[in-house]
Amino acid sequence: MEIPRHWRLKKQRYSLQGEICPHCEGKIFPPRDVCPHCGNDARTTFTFSGRGKIYSFTHVTEAPAGFEETAPYTVALVQLEEGPVVTAQLTDVQADEVEIGMPVEMVTRKIRSDGDERGIIIYGYKFRPVMQH
């Protein structure tokens, strides 16, 4: 059980909440309080739009412990529209539909259960192909 860790990360996991650097305007995800672009203090909260494109991806058939329920699935590096690249599972997509450059959007989904059906449910970001409207 890692309840404190999951609890600490909930804002960034549920809604892609990162930071913006007050000095160089750089957008930061995950939040780290120091700007990776200019090295200054950066603690201003910034919520990302959740839109991005697939930078690269791989298919996972032998899932690590805790992720078996959704296997097989695709893990992607997603370049967010604001700049940072995040690693996340894709969802609501067939493996053969995934392409580099594909536009995706963030959704909040079940990531895993901590332990069996008795443990807490961990929620967080995944990405799916952009739905048109």
Binding site: Y14, E69, T70, Q89, T91, D92, V107, T108, R109, K110, I111, I121, Y123, K126
Partner: peptide
């Protein structure tokens, strides 16, 4: 629902 969906995730969307 998909394997990673429940009332919480669907309510969020």
């Amino acid at each position: 629902p998909g394997a990673d969906e429940d009332v919480i995730t669907m309510s969020i969307e």
